[in-house]
């Protein structure tokens, strides 16, 4: 028998049962080499024989015999074996529907904790260290400038190119200035910053706080009476809420610069003309609307990242999952928030 398979053990005995066999004897004491597959077969064989009340007499090499003893030494613990998860679509759908309310409640709980921490900060009782706040601002603000410069400048360029293709057909190249200006300032600058910050900072927050959870560093804070939300979440939420709008302003500037480069160098517009067109066609309110978007995005990214970190499980895999989920949630959150704010602006007529 090459490569004996476990199910064969049962089949082999099933044939014997009719013939009123009472004893099973296996002679293999001269067996030289064997591996785990034989052991698995023997375990199945012994189990099948026991089920049929056959007595078993195994004549095996010493090592194999002892391994077999070992395999039966500790009986399987009752209830230790897990039921296989039901993976049918309907089951999973129902399962996620049932677990949704507690998950939403948990998230709202977290938001409540953050709000309470803000209130404590307002009263001057929050256990937040100013240096943590400054460090967080440095991390998510200053250090993000290069990547924000690059992405927004290129995005301004792209916007100008796409617009120019259509507008040159009507000889209306100058409107590229308005297109890029309104597009960047009103919404695209904030979205660019939001998406970049989700990947850069939201993920970092989730991974950092998640790893602290794994190392029991968060527990260490709690046992010292320092609320982890005050100490870890508050400085990060505040820092992002301040820095994302500021970065949005910077991204606006870089985006307009990108449009300017295309307008002047590709479309042959006069530099002064482009500048004037931008100031005329883009009212100041767009900058303010962009700041509103930016502030909301900052809160979303920070809360999504910190929430995933704080609720992270105690394994390396959980940290990875928390990081991915934080990024996905904050980007989805940004897009949903954009839609909501856009509709609100439309209703308000601004």
């Amino acid at each position: 028998m090459e490569e004996p398979r476990p199910e064969e053990a049962d089949a082999a005995l099933a044939g014997l049962a009719d013939q009123r066999v009472r004893q099973l004897r296996l002679e293999a004491s001269a067996l030289g080499q064997w591996d785990t597959s034989l052991l698995v077969f023997l375990v199945q064989l012994v189990k099948a024989a026991r089920a049929r009340q056959l007595s078993v007499d195994l004549d095996l090499p010493q090592g194999l015999k002892r391994l077999l003893h070992l395999a039966f030494a500790v009986p399987a613990q009752d209830g230790a074996a897990r039921k296989k998860a039901n993976t049918s679509f309907l089951y999973r759908l129902g399962d996620s529907a049932i677990t949704l309310p507690p998950r939403v409640a948990d998230f709202l709980n977290f938001c409540g904790d953050v709000t309470l921490a803000l209130w404590r900060l307002f009263l001057g009782r929050a256990k937040m260290r100013p240096q943590d706040f400054v460090a967080a601002m440095h991390e998510c603000g200053v250090q993000a400038l290069p990547i924000i410069s690059l992405t927004s400048l290129l995005f301004g360029l792209i916007l100008a190119f796409v617009g120019a293709v259509q507008l040159t057909q009507f000889g209306a190249q100058i409107y590229v200035a308005g297109l890029v200006g309104i597009g960047m300032l009103r919404v695209m600058g904030a979205i660019m910053v939001g998406v970049v910050m989700s990947g850069r900072v939201g993920a970092a927050y989730a991974a950092l706080i998640g790893t602290m959870q794994v190392n029991e560093e968060v527990d260490a804070l709690s046992t010292l009476g320092i609320p982890p939300v005050d100490f870890l979440v508050l400085p990060r939420v505040l820092a992002l809420t301040f820095m994302v709008p500021l970065l949005t302003l910077y991204a606006d500037l870089m985006g307009v610069l990108g449009g300017y480069l295309v307008g002047v160098m590709m479309l042959g517009l006069n530099p002064m003309e482009y500048f004037n067109a931008t100031t005329q066609m883009v009212p100041f309110k767009h900058v303010l609307i962009g700041l509103v978007y930016g502030t909301v995005f900052g809160v979303i990214i920070a809360v999504a990242g910190c929430y995933q970190g704080m609720r992270c499980g105690r394994s390396a895999q959980a940290v990875g999952q928390a990081t991915t989920t934080a990024v996905v949630h904050s980007i989805v959150g940004i897009i949903v928030a954009t839609a909501v704010i856009t509709v609100i602006c439309n209703v308000l007529g601004v």
Partner: peptide, 14 residues
Amino acid sequence: RHAGVLFQGGALWS
């Protein structure tokens, strides 16, 4: 406030 804790891995703030 009157207790001290040593966690399994030390749990120092990294």
